[in-house]
């Protein structure tokens, strides 16, 4: 008798919890999905300022979007690529022109770098260096001096590793995308 009471109580609580959560989720889930979508969208259009519409390219192994402008002609690609930073993963949205020879802009989506130091990769002075950067043959990191070539990026003082990680991730991402292009998977 007592055993049934024990079991019944907890089971009942479980059922009520499951039920009520399910109901809340029904309300929240679409909104959450919407939020996530909006965020991706925002990032895509941040790296392609003239972008108005995008399509996801499937079966590439990572996220690649083809971006179109107002006139519905293609302006290039956006890809999301992740790699190791100083303290954890860095996830970057990279915007590229159609021919993959020029970076339009980058946007850091996720990172867990040292606050105030590694996190400077989020800030304009560093990030803006990637605008109109030529990633061929590959991006180079320079320290202490101003970049003199179109494929050079100046490292953040005191956060060499974070700066270098971003460069490495972008290089790797662009390389992978080029491979895909050669394979013709971007159509």
């Amino acid at each position: 008798m007592k055993v049934t009471h024990i079991i019944a109580t907890l089971t009942l609580i479980g059922i009520i919890a499951g039920g009520s959560l399910s109901l809340v989720n029904n309300w929240a889930a679409p909104k959450i999905a919407l939020n996530q979508k909006a965020e991706t969208e925002r990032a895509i259009f941040l790296v392609h300022l003239d972008g108005k519409r995008y399509e996801e390219i499937k079966n590439t192994g990572f996220e690649v979007y083809k971006v179109f402008n107002q006139a519905d002609s293609s302006v290039g690609y956006s890809l999301v690529y992740a790699g190791n930073g100083f303290q954890g993963k860095i996830k970057i949205m990279i915007g590229l022109t159609e021919d993959l020879n020029k970076i339009t802009s980058i946007e850091i989506l996720e990172q867990s770098e040292t606050p105030g130091l590694g996190t400077k990769i989020l800030e304009a002075p560093y990030k803006n260096q990637y605008k109109e950067l030529t990633p061929t043959p590959s991006i180079k990191l320079v320290k202490g001096v101003e970049p003199s070539n179109p494929n050079e990026v100046k490292a953040i003082t005191g956060a060499t590793i974070s700066s270098r990680s971003v460069v490495a991730i972008v290089n790797e991402g662009v390389k992978r995308l080029k491979e895909l292009q050669i394979k013709g998977a971007l159509k």
Partner: peptide
Amino acid sequence: TLIIAIATMGGLGFIFAGALAFADK
């Protein structure tokens, strides 16, 4: 989903409560 959710939580509760009752005895 609702039914599965209820079943999952209820089931877990059931198992746990049973184990506890058993332990108690």
